[in-house]
Every structure is written in C-alpha cells, then in structure tokens.
Amino acid sequence: MSKVQDGTYYIINRVESPNGERLCITFNGEGQPPTVTAKRSDSAEQKWRITTFSDGRTQSIVPAANTGLECAWGPGVVTVLTPGQYVWTIRSSEGGYTIKDGGETQVWGLNVANVGSQIAIGNDTELERQRWTFHEA
C-alpha cells in the first residue's frame, strides 16, 4: 500500500452529498472538529498539509489556514489542536485512501455523507464513506 506524499491537498470523501457535491474536509478553527463542505478551489480552509514523521510511516495532517495546529483524536471525532505529534497513517486501498490512527486500528469516515458532517473515528467497516481522495492544492 502506498502512502500520500508530503504536500498540500484537498481531502475529499469518496461519497458525494445527496445533492451531488464533492465533500471536502474543512477546517473550522482551533479546538473544533473539521466538517465536510462542498469543495471550493478558493478555500484556504479546505487545504491540508501532509508531512511524514521521521519514522517514515506516520504522518501529520495540518490545516494550511493555520499551520500551528494539527488534526488530533477527539471524542469519537477528529478535532484540530495545538501540535502534540498526533500521528496518522494514510494508505491507498481498493476504494480510495484510508486515514487511520498510528496503530492502524481506527479509521476516519463519515457517519452521514452530508454537508456539515463531522469526521468520525471508528472501526474500519470498508464503507466508501471511510475512503478519501487527495487532490493537490
């Protein structure tokens, strides 16, 4: 399985909204969970920097709109906090990329593919809502 290379990306869910919108992870501020919103190419809040840690395996996910923060594990959802070396593994899979915790036991996904949905963290049930695409920003 290949990983995403370091760079700045739009992270888009494999499932579109009921209105046919491509759902892009969107930064909502420090201490807030990101949500998915319709992809807009002019949105700094939808750009995320991926950087590989020195172990060569795990990566950080940082909002380009505030590089002093990073994605962390909140209560059942992804949240954005001050850096704490929160690590994720981003790997290609059959249906798209998975974003999992460093131990690769829990996966990011959407409970409902709708604008405004938070990114849940839970067991990998191999649903398309737990698969993502990465588009260079």
Rank of each mutant, 00 (worst) to 15 (best):
P83T: 13
P63M: 04
N19H: 08
E126D: 14
S60E: 06
N123I: 14
F53P: 03
L127V: 05
E126P: 00
F27E: 03
R129T: 14
F27A: 11
V36D: 02
E16H: 10
Q32W: 10
Y9Q: 05
A44F: 12
E21N: 09
E136P: 08
I99H: 02
W108D: 00
I12A: 03
P63D: 11
K47F: 12
R22L: 07
D42R: 10
P83F: 13
T8H: 07
L110M: 05
I50H: 03
S2L: 10
N114H: 07
K3M: 10
E104R: 12
Y86L: 02
T52Y: 05
Q130F: 00
M1A: 09
G102R: 14
A44L: 14
I12K: 09
W108R: 00
E128R: 13
G103M: 11
T82H: 06
G31W: 02
D124M: 09
P18F: 12
G96R: 04
R14L: 01
K100W: 04
M1V: 15
A113V: 01
E21T: 05
T125V: 15
T98Q: 11
L23E: 01
I99G: 00
G76E: 09
Y9W: 11
D42P: 00
G122L: 05
P34Q: 06
E126K: 11
K47I: 09
A64P: 00
A64M: 12
I25Y: 04
S93R: 07
G29C: 06
Q106A: 11
R129W: 00
I11Q: 00
A38W: 02
I90H: 05
W48M: 02
E94N: 08
I119L: 15
G84I: 12
R40Q: 13
D124P: 01
G116N: 06
K3W: 07
S54Q: 06
G102P: 04
T37E: 14
S92Y: 11
